[in-house]
Amino acid sequence: MDELKQIPIWQGALIVLILLSQSTWLFIDARKRGSYPWFWGMWGLIQFPGPLIFYWLFVRKRWLRKGK
């Protein structure tokens, strides 16, 4: 708990803003594409930038899809 006390409030707010923005964008885009929006949205809330990278590679890039 002492580690959290050392983080300035503006850094904590920035981290929350980044995670919420990422999660919202992943959810909305995955819903448009029919690709497990709740999974991407929840994963986007707990990590950065891993979910964005994996989403871009496995959902957005057509060259990785088989048969298309």
Rank of each mutant, 00 (worst) to 15 (best):
D2M: 03
E3S: 12
E3T: 13
E3P: 07
K5L: 11
K5T: 08
Q6W: 11
Q6R: 15
I7A: 03
I7G: 04
I7M: 07
I7W: 00
P8I: 02
P8F: 00
I9S: 12
I9A: 14
W10E: 12
W10G: 01
Q11K: 10
Q11E: 10
Q11F: 10
Q11H: 06
G12N: 09
A13F: 13
A13D: 10
L14N: 11
L14Q: 09
L14I: 12
I15V: 14
I15E: 05
I15C: 04
V16K: 05
V16D: 05
L17S: 12
L17H: 08
I18P: 01
I18D: 03
L19T: 08
L19S: 07
S21Q: 01
S21W: 11
S21A: 13
S21P: 03
S21E: 04
Q22Y: 02
Q22T: 14
Q22E: 14
T24P: 01
T24D: 00
T24H: 00
W25E: 03
W25R: 03
W25K: 04
L26D: 02
L26G: 01
F27P: 05
I28P: 00
I28V: 10
I28K: 06
I28H: 03
I28A: 05
D29L: 01
A30P: 07
A30L: 07
A30K: 05
R31A: 15
K32T: 01
R33G: 05
R33Q: 12
R33I: 04
G34K: 11
S35I: 13
S35Y: 11
Y36I: 07
Y36M: 08
P37W: 02
P37S: 03
W38T: 01
W38L: 05
F39C: 04
F39K: 09
W40A: 11
W40P: 10
G41I: 06
M42S: 12
W43C: 02
W43V: 08
W43Q: 03
G44M: 03
G44N: 06
G44L: 03
G44P: 02
L45H: 00
L45E: 00
F48M: 14
F48P: 13
F48Y: 14
P49R: 00
G50D: 06
G50M: 07
G50T: 11
P51D: 02
P51Q: 03
L52I: 15
F54K: 06
F54L: 11
F54W: 15
Y55L: 02
W56T: 15
W56Q: 14
W56K: 13
L57S: 08
L57C: 12
F58K: 02
F58Q: 01
F58M: 02
V59T: 09
R60T: 10
R60K: 15
K61M: 14
K61H: 08
K61I: 09
R62S: 09
R62P: 03
W63P: 10
W63F: 14
W63V: 15
R65K: 14
R65E: 12
R65H: 12
R65W: 13
R65Y: 10
K66Y: 12
K66F: 10
K66H: 07
K66R: 13
G67L: 02
G67A: 07
G67Y: 06
K68N: 06
K68E: 12
K68F: 06
